[in-house]
Amino acid sequence: MTLTVTMTLNGESVSAEVEGRTLLVQLIRDHFRLTGTHVGCDTSQCGACVVHMNGQSVKSCTVLAAQADGAEVSTIESLAENGELHPMQQAFKDNHGLQCGFCTPGMVMSALDLVANNPDPGEAEIRDWLEGNLCRCTGYHNIVKSIAAGAQAMRS
């Protein structure tokens, strides 16, 4: 059975034919070829696939494409404008908050949802929030610094 899914993806109205079993991340990556959203696991732990759906961070590997019908979805590709990094992206660069880069899009999207909920998060709050995002490179030290700096930049 195929369905038509229509959504606003990074500000543009798009639609696609999908199977019922198609995942949102498959739609984003394989159909729309936005490959910044990654798949790192199959049990919803790693958070490499985090995107925003209707303003909230979600794991796009655990959402059916069909569930996103009518939704507003934004991915890592939506953040930088005219080659200028978003303040959170810039903070990750300035603080060496990424190494291999694979978990990074999910980290940044997750961090932005944190800041939306808590504009001035402390270290413990950041570490707690990152429960759904795994990084194997950085030991999180610089990710935590990056998010604190990104939040500060977004406040000012």
């Binding site: 936005l34 490959t35 910044g36 959203t37 991915t75 890592i76 590709e77 953040l79 930088a80 990094l85 992206q89 990750f92 660069k93 990424l98 291999c100 880069g101 694979f102 990074t104 899009p105 940044v108």
Partner: peptide, 9 residues
């Protein structure tokens, strides 16, 4: 970093 942070890896 630019390409990784913008999803262009």
């Amino acid at each position: 970093d630019f390409r990784f942070l913008t999803g262009q890896g």
